[in-house]
Design a protein around this nucleic acid. Sequence first.
RNA 1: GUGGAUGUAGCUCAGUUGGCAGAGCGCUUGGUUGUGGCCCAAGUGGUCGUGGGUUCAAGUCCCAUCAUUCACCCCA
Length: 426
Amino acid sequence: MQKLRTIKGTHDILPWESHKWQKIESVLREVFAAYAYKEVRTPVFEYTALFARGVGEFSDIVSKEMYTFEDKGGESLTLRPELTASVARSFIQHNYQQEAPLHKLWYLGPLFRQERPQAGRQRQFHQFGIEVIGSPHPEADAEVIELACRVYRALGLRNWELHINSIGSIEARKNYMDILRAALEPHKDGLCDTCRERFHGNILRLFDCKNPECGRIMKAHAPAILDHLSPEDTEHFNALRNYLDAVGIPYVIDPALVRGLDYYTRTTFEIKGTALGAQDALCGGGRYDLLIRDLDGPDTPAVGFAAGMERLILAMDAEGLFEQESDGLDLYIAPMDSRCLEKVLPLVTALREKGYRVQLELLRRSVKAMLRDANRQQVQWVAVVGEQELEKRSMNLKNLRENDQLETAWDEIGAVLDRTSKRKPI
RNA sequence: GUGGAUGUAGCUCAGUUGGCAGAGCGCUUGGUUGUGGCCCAAGUGGUCGUGGGUUCAAGUCCCAUCAUUCACCCCA
């Protein structure tokens, strides 16, 4: 270690940026509460096997992006690269299904993946998300999607669009992959190298390729997965669409939206930020009816989404949605010297106890400097405290926003501050 | 893991054919013996990412290295 600095791909949330996180978090809590979701918090590290089994051993995340290490007992542990597996583990471990037939959960926390950083992608990043565990019905999918959209609307974000698709049940998907392979076989030579490699593995990934030639071939010759679903899958998808239509959520049906982690079944969806760079997925999710069973839990259907905090902040910054928020300080006490400070200290403490936000000068600066500082901090009221004020047990409360001043007895101060304060007693 | 771009003051950036390190903003102080903003003035602040090399002389040219960043891969 030469210079002390953050690890590649990690960032400090600086004191003058943290308000952005707090604003988003408070809106999230309100939205989740309105939809009756409960928060779940799980540890940031888990046994490696959880992710290997839950996410899929051959997925990129597990095979090359995890922070895995051995503890002193020789156990292989991993910093969580995603949260759905952890929530599923918690569900199984604590037998949630014994408590109630349906659980609606939300989470927010840091995740870790060892990738090359770029715009909208860090090695430590944060996701919030929800999981509805227990319902196989399309109304659960609809609620999850509608809730995701609600979050972005509630935050005032405009430049995004919802993409939905269905990749069907396991059987329908296997069937479709054979059909796709057969349809593309004659055009195989025109595909790029990676696509030719994937041809015999997960052929669905060919939809993701950004090579223009591959895109042309897929568009011309690949049959749509929606045409090859089982009748039950189709019914589920149509019901979802009806629900979305009923609540006025516009969406794009995107047959190429086949990605995601190994555990998805039927519904997949994504919310794309239309003003972002290459990393434009604000939110991704879908149904995962098999995950909990695959982790040796009870056969339990589930649907959810995960959304990136950092990308959301990028998108909101691009739309100028973070106003310069003041700290809402009620009063700035500017003592003329240390003796005056000592004498007003009990008053300051008493006001803070009642919940007023009071800034007290700690640098022994000049009156002019203190006033300047108070102005910079957008404090509502400021009081210079010298010998006169101590003798009369009153102070001139100067309203920095209205530019007037009124003499106030010490025990009247609260009443004046109440005109503008948003205090809550502590 | 692959490819491109960029590293100069706290921030955003100038810096000419190689010739004494700059601006704006910010911050501090002063212009008022106890009163902010606007204005004016002064001040603070840089091992020029790091290590080698070429040269009388390197922020500038060469090599290496580290970091940041954008894109690929993949994903939130």
